[in-house]
Write a protein that binds this DNA or RNA. Structure first.
Length: 333
DNA sequence: TAGCATGATTATCG
DNA sequence: CGATAATCATGCTA
């Protein structure tokens, strides 16, 4: 590359280049700083990334692994960025020296004002800073790609653990008449499940819509959890009323065996009064809604304000694909 | 590997 | 701003 050519190019144009307050480069600088690429070693940048990751919502267990991976890649990008930057700076000062030498040589044949020298230097710096901007831009791009690869929660979806979905389902089906947990309830559920509040909201949003869309598919689950909560209520009341709680092994999972009373034989021990009530209520609400939406028979379903889901989707609920009669023969004995 | 399950995102509405 | 409906992208399983 010929210095004279470059020199002439620089002197011809470069005058009309934009000046210091370049918004573009400011933006890039800010972003690189925020991303932890520029700025002090392992400073607030990674903290910001961590905050972003946490905000995106992820289980705390695997996020650390993902995060270290992310950090490694980010460090790589940062290293490349810095070495390139250094190279450019070195080249810039080298080139400036060359130009100065040339000017000095020329000054023997023609007078050169300090102003001209100054202008030349400014032009060179501007040229190199525009190259720097390209570097910053491509670095930004790389970081963005990295972020979307590693931090996009959608890409890194993990199913909630069994216990979490258990808790959520329990709440959902025991509040089936109004499955809209309050903010406090959401927080509690989130804490219990080890997920974020917004994940709880997502879950309930998905659950409501999917339940409503295909009630039949959820019948078994609904009954299952109805029984579960009924049993829980039984345990609670038994513990409350009687000093000794006779048969309370482990509250949850072993009682899943009660699924067998899915359709007809709701033979709960006669001594348990309130839980039967809950059970009736729950099964009635689920099965009852299916009936009125599927067959068109309608009675004002106001009994417990379970008027969620009555927004125009009644027709979309096709006849239940599951075993007929196994479900809504529940409490009608 | 196809197809369903599921968590997250987006568009829209009140 | 929160809810819904549609959709996306991944996880899981037969």
């Amino acid at each position: 590359m010929c210095h004279f050519c470059l020199l002439s190019v620089l002197s011809i144009r470069g005058v009309q280049e934009e000046d210091p307050p370049d918004p573009q480069i400011m933006r890039l600088d800010n972003m690189l700083l925020a991303e932890g690429v520029s700025g002090p070693e392992k400073g607030g940048g990674s903290a910001a990334a961590a905050a972003a990751a946490a905000a995106a919502g992820g289980s705390p267990t695997d996020s650390s692994i993902e995060h270290s991976d992310y950090r490694a890649k980010l460090a790589q990008i940062r290293q490349i960025y810095h070495s390139e930057l250094e190279k450019y700076e070195q080249a810039c000062s080298e080139f400036t020296n060359h130009v100065m030498n040339l000017l000095r040589e020329q000054s023997r044949t023609r007078p050169i004002s300090p102003k001209e020298i100054e202008r030349m230097v400014a032009i060179i710096h501007r040229k190199f800073s525009s190259i720097q901007m390209q570097l910053k831009q491509s670095t930004c791009e790389a970081v963005m790609i990295l972020r979307s690869r590693f931090l996009d929660a959608r890409r890194k979806r993990r199913n909630f653990n069994k216990q979490a979905t258990e808790v959520l389902n329990e709440y959902f089906y025991s509040h089936l008449s109004n499955p809209y947990p309050s903010e406090e309830a959401k927080e509690e559920l989130a804490k219990k499940c080890g997920i974020t509040v917004s994940q709880v909201s997502n879950w309930f949003g998905n659950k409501r819509i999917r339940y409503k869309k295909n009630i039949g598919k959820f019948q078994e689950e609904a009954n299952l959890y109805a029984v579960k909560t009924a049993v829980d209520a039984a345990n609670v009341s038994a513990q409350a009323s009687q000093a000794n709680s006779p048969a309370t092994p482990n509250s949850g999972d072993t009682y899943l065996g009660l699924r067998s009373l899915n359709g007809e034989g709701l033979n709960i021990a006669p001594s348990l009064q309130p839980q039967v009530d809950t059970l009736h209520r729950a099964t009635h609400l689920t099965g009852g809604y299916e009936e009125l939406s599927g067959s068109g028979l309608f009675t004002p379903h106001r009994l417990d304000a379970n008027s969620w889901q009555d927004t125009t989707t009644l027709s979309s609920v096709t006849s239940p694909p599951g075993p007929p009669g196994s479900v809504h023969s529940d409490t009608s004995n």
